[in-house]
Each structure stands twice: as C-alpha cells, then as structure tokens.
C-alpha cells in the first residue's frame, strides 16, 4: 500500500497511509536537521553549568546574561565586529551588482569582436580554485600596502571577479525580449540607456538574487578576512568568533553560543525575507548549468 504513495507516485491518487508515511519521514527529518541549531539557541540562554547535562530545547529562563557577557568578552566589543562585517558585505553587494551587470549586459546584448573568447575565459574562471591566485594576490596587496585594510576584500568585487553572478545575469538577460532593445534603438537610445532604462528595471529578480548571495557569502566568509585582516579592531564577526574560541577554549560555551547565534541571525533574517529568491537562485544555478 505505501508502495503506491512515495516519490513519483503512480498516476492515481496517493493513498492516505502513504501520504502520512511521507509526512512522518519529513517531519522527523526536519526535527533531526534543525535540532543542533535549536539546541544552540536554547543553550545560549542556559547558565554555564547547565549546558552539557541538558539536551532540552527549552531554556529554564530567557536570561540574556550570556549575550551581554559575550558581547564584551573580547578587548573590542562585538558592535565593532558587526559594523566591520556589515560594511564589507554592503560594499561587496554594491560592487558585485554594478560590475557584474555591466559585464553581463555586454555578453548578453552587445556584439563586439572577441566576445566569444572572453565569454569562454569568463566561464573558465568559474572553475578556477581561488588558491591558484591567492599568493600572487596577497603579494600584490602587500606591496601596495593594503594588508590589514578591507580593500583586498572589496575592491576586486568592483571589477567583476565573481563570475558566477555574471553567468546568472547573462542567462537572465538573454531571456528578456530583444524587441525591447530594438524599439529603444529606433527611438535613438544608445547601449547605456538601454542597459540603464530597459534591462536593469526588468532584471530586479536576478539583481536581487545576486545581491542576496553576495551578502550571505561575504557575511559568512572566513578565509578572506583571516588572510587580510590582522588587527582585532578590523575583525569581522567570523574572525571574532574564532578569536573567542581560541581565547576561552571550552570554558565559556554559553557566551560562545550566544555570539554564534548572533553571528548567524542576519542569515536567518535574510532567509525569512527572501526565501523565494534564495531557493530560486539555487535551483537556477543547477538547471542549464
């Protein structure tokens, strides 16, 4: 009986038992998936001694002590780290959306010599592991005195180094009807006005997707800041968390969990707000990839 119900069910109506079985499986699965996160949230409110002995997801009280202590546990407060992270992420979003949409417009709409070769090169950079460019980039930034500033993390984004977003936008732009461009051209619009007044306004979904993923990835990024930022006053939230782990070892799990929870809170907020765009963005990257 349940044999008729599962995935790719046989044409006719699925049986009740089968549907219930699937729900049970999915609910159990989601609980298992989310338990670690919920447990971390609950533990961030528990007194230090109560964390390990307690598997429950309901804290004894909503005592914000861990949050207050954790926020100021390092020599620089987390307000600073949040600001640093936020500033970098916003600049990266602006850089990516601007530079990648310009490039994608040229690839999708303009016909110029060498376009296909450049497009092939761009696609190749998608595959290139960043380790290959890491060391010469570091040497370059060292020589121009950019180490321990946010410039190495931000400036390249204004030069369209994230090929993934270019690719995403090219796909989208190609789907927009060409008649619009043609009509604008007849009315005397040049490429810039077509890009600015026709293509961009029609492309809000893909621009938003690029902006959201830029923000999420930059917010989460650990490797870049680890290499380029040295002074604690310039740390991003992930770097600060790592410093926190190193300095407290295993003695302050409650505070550590409180700060970890805060570190991923903006990501959850984004997901709540932009769930559709995020999920569509992931699906888009896989189809026609």
């Amino acid at each position: 009986m349940s044999a008729e119900a599962g995935p790719g069910q046989v044409g006719s109506e699925p049986t009740i038992v089968g549907v219930i079985a699937r729900h049970v499986l999915l609910i159990a699965g989601s609980v298992l998936m989310l338990y670690p996160l919920l447990w971390m949230l609950a533990s961030s409110f528990k007194p230090e001694a109560g964390i390990f002995s307690n598997l429950s997801l309901i804290p004894p009280s909503l005592n914000p002590k861990n949050y207050i202590d954790g926020w100021n546990a390092l020599e620089v407060s987390f307000s600073r780290f949040y600001w640093n992270s936020f500033l970098i992420a916003i600049l990266v979003v602006i850089g990516n959306v601007m530079s990648c949409s310009l490039t994608a417009y040229a690839f999708a709409r303009l016909r110029f010599r060498g376009r296909n070769i450049l497009f092939a090169l761009m696609m190749m950079t998608l595959m290139l592991p960043y380790h290959v460019t890491l060391i010469p980039q570091y040497v370059l930034f060292l020589n121009i005195g950019w180490i321990d500033t946010i410039l190495p993390l931000v400036v390249p984004k204004f030069l369209a180094v994230d090929a993934f977003f270019i690719f995403l936008m090219v796909q989208f732009f190609r789907g927009l009807p060409r008649e619009l461009d043609e009509a604008a051209k007849i009315d005397g619009c040049g490429p810039w006005r077509i890009y600015w007044m026709i293509i961009l306004p029609l492309s809000k979904p893909v621009l938003a997707t690029a902006a959201i993923f830029s923000f999420l990835w930059t917010w989460n990024d650990f490797f870049g800041p680890l290499i380029y930022l040295n002074d604690i006053s310039r740390y991003t939230v992930p770097l600060a968390l790592r410093a926190f782990v190193d300095s407290t070892g295993t003695s302050a799990w409650g505070q550590l969990f409180a700060m970890s929870t805060l570190a991923i809170a903006p990501i959850f907020l984004f997901f709540l707000l932009f769930q559709r765009l995020i999920i569509r963005g992931v699906a888009m990257s896989g189809l026609k990839g």
Partner: peptide, 28 residues
C-alpha cells in the same frame, strides 16, 4: 558599431580579469 560600447561595458571585468585572475594565475 558595438565594439567600443562592448569594451567599455566590459572594462571592469577585463581589468579585474587581468589584475586578479590571469596575472596572479601566471605569477603563481
């Protein structure tokens, strides 16, 4: 006709590609 606008639109990417991808790849 579209050569010049094409390269202008591509300019950030071309610069980024030379400075941060192709150059460093060869250098490494």
């Amino acid at each position: 006709d579209e050569d010049l606008p094409g390269y202008l639109f591509m300019a950030p990417w071309i610069l980024g590609f030379l400075l941060f991808t192709l150059g460093p790849t060869l250098a490494s």
